[in-house]
């Protein structure tokens, strides 16, 4: 099992959110929008901002140093 920051995921890779850490307001907002510990995710378009598939919905995200999202990589499609 490999845990990496979300930014490290490449297009097509799948994983599961391991932990969210950083500014409380932003973390709560992410959780409300469905990005929370344990949900499976897939990187649809890597980059900043990236497009992420979370539970059949697509979220667009850009991270700053203040917030880290850690992902357990499930399958490497490269």
């Amino acid at each position: 099992m490999l845990v990496v920051p979300l930014e490290m995921m490449t297009t097509g890779e799948q994983g599961r959110i391991h932990a969210l850490d950083g500014s409380p307001a932003f973390v709560v907002r992410l959780q409300e929008m469905g990005l929370r510990e344990g949900v499976p995710v897939q990187m649809v378009r890597a980059g900043s901002p990236c497009i992420l598939s979370v539970n059949d919905q697509r979220l667009s995200l850009r991270f700053e140093d203040s917030t880290t999202v850690l992902v357990e990589l499930l399958k490497c499609t490269r």
């Binding site: 901002p49 697509r58 667009s60 995200l61 850009r62 700053e64």
Partner: peptide
């Protein structure tokens, strides 16, 4: 100030 983080839903 810093650029704030950004998150937005992309509806189908």
């Amino acid at each position: 100030g810093e650029t704030p983080p950004f998150v937005m839903e992309l509806p189908s």
